[in-house]
């Protein structure tokens, strides 16, 4: 479950504090819920995803992610929560010196899963995103779409309870985008809470669902 109560976010602190990027957000996403995250560029979609991904802490307000209050959590309490969150970044954020296989395996290895299970899960995941033959390639040798699929595989391979995606179809053709939506919906059906930020109107039209709409860091409505 995700809940925000009067959450504001401001980057930096003290005299170096920047302007607030999110203002007084109140919203709730039930466990196993699906939300589109929509709004023009600069509305704060990425900042909200960073909050939900526990990359930043709220400046003000109460944030509950996966049942844990984030504002009061110690640093040591966050890693186990992060291991239950999968995130597809707009810029992929793959490790350039690792193969596609090792990039996808990373969350499992960090979580200390047995290597046998890592091999089986990663192989299956790469097959699903159609990259079985590219598993030894470094990100630099992959096309934008292939890198995006590696990023998606890495976000999903650990069967996260909360799945976040920032423009996940930006570099995918329509067929791949459809496959991705099927994957996200399947994860959602299996119980994961899913939040997808997108500009892709056609995609939203094909897969209607409740949306969080942001504008200038404020909530327009929580439909």
């Amino acid at each position: 479950m995700v809940r925000l109560e009067g959450v504001s976010l401001q980057y930096g602190s003290g005299r170096r504090a920047g302007p607030a990027v999110l203002h007084e957000l109140d919203l709730t996403i039930p466990e196993g819920g699906f939300r589109w995250l929509r709004g023009p560029s600069g509305a704060g979609k990425t900042s909200l995803l960073r909050l939900l991904n526990l990359t930043v802490r709220p400046t003000r307000g109460r944030l509950v992610v996966l049942g844990s209050e984030i504002g009061g959590a110690t640093r040591a309490e966050l890693p186990p929560l992060r291991q239950r969150i999968g995130m597809v970044f707009q810029d992929f954020r793959l490790l350039p010196h690792l193969s596609a296989f090792d990039n996808v395996a990373l969350p499992l290895r960090i979580a200390g899963r047995p290597e046998g299970q890592v091999r089986a899960d990663v192989t299956e995941m790469l097959r699903w995103v159609g990259l079985s033959r590219r598993s030894d390639a470094r990100p630099a040798a992959l096309s934008g779409g292939e890198q995006q699929r590696v990023a998606i595989a890495r976000a999903v391979v650990g069967r996260p309870s909360l799945l976040l995606a920032d423009e996940p179809t930006g570099n995918l053709d329509d067929t791949q985008a459809e496959r991705l939506m099927l994957l996200l919906k399947e994860m959602n059906r299996l119980g994961a809470t899913v939040v997808v930020a997108t500009h892709n109107e056609a995609l939203v039209a094909r897969h209607p669902g409740p949306a969080i709409r942001l504008e200038s860091g404020r909530l327009r409505d929580d439909a």
Partner: peptide
């Protein structure tokens, strides 16, 4: 720095 931030974001502990 970037690799550490990525690994940290994936749930790596300080100890890791």
């Amino acid at each position: 720095r970037e690799a550490i931030e990525i690994v940290h974001g994936l749930g790596a502990t300080d100890g890791y």
